[in-house]
Design a protein around this nucleic acid. Structure first.
Lengths: 120, 120
DNA sequence: GCAACGTTAGCACTCCCGTGTCAAGGTTTT
DNA sequence: AAAACCTTGACACGGGAGTGCTAACGTTGC
């Protein structure tokens, strides 16, 4: 069947179940091409991506919905900006904070925002 | 009681229930200061923030956990980078894509990543 | 000092996510 | 043509998120 694994084979080598591979497609995290007959075909790239995703979730103890949301943010500028603005709207620092600490905080704001982009 | 609203008053003017205001604190999305006796005090900033949060969730149909995750990403560089790398690892473009389209895609990658930072 | 409000802790309910499994039907292989 | 795959769709279940309510106890205002 040309090159690329079938869903059970892909499940085998990635550690996901076939069921989950379909689910991951459903929530938009992967999108394997299909054969004429509609069979999913998992290429090497997709396989690597699937393994990496497992590591990601395990290492940072997060959910599929979290990664899906990160993707939404990457693709939707309006959403990204709205969330970013909200996160930066934290009100009055703790009482004990000295003014120059506050200034440093303000100065680092831009830095923190830029940091959102430092993915490879 | 100095300046700032009590939890029921805050609930009134923000549209959240008192229960949810406590819950929002629990998941780290707000952090109202306390009186000596331990009563939460909601200042104008916190109130605005709470209203904005409702709008955000409604407008983009997302969950508290999504916003919480965005915050985690903002604060944890390692997480942010790992997610970013994964999102950029999408394998083979659709078959029909011409080479110069692919090139444009690659060139826009940096742009897309930078875009993550354009919040206010 | 009592009424009205705050605190935390806990029970309980609904809804959705992640997951398995099975059914009915099409495809590929031998 | 039968065996061994694939597809979608549905029922089902455990666990966690989001939410209300009550209990037990401390604080504030009149």
């Amino acid at each position: 069947m040309s090159d690329g694994l079938t869903i059970h084979e892909a499940a085998q080598t990635t550690g996901w179940s076939p069921r989950m591979l379909r689910y991951l497609e459903r929530v938009g995290l992967v999108d394997p091409p299909r054969t004429e007959a509609g069979y999913r075909v998992f290429g090497p790239g997709e396989l690597q991506r699937l393994r990496t995703l497992r590591e990601l979730l395990a290492r940072f103890e997060c959910q599929l919905s979290d990664v899906a949301f990160a993707k939404r943010m990457r693709d939707d500028a309006e959403l990204r900006q709205a969330v970013g603005r909200w996160l930066e709207s934290e009100p009055r620092r703790p009482e004990g904070v000295a003014t120059d600490d506050w200034l440093r905080w303000e100065q680092e704001k831009h830095q923190r925002l830029l940091a959102l982009a430092d993915a490879a």
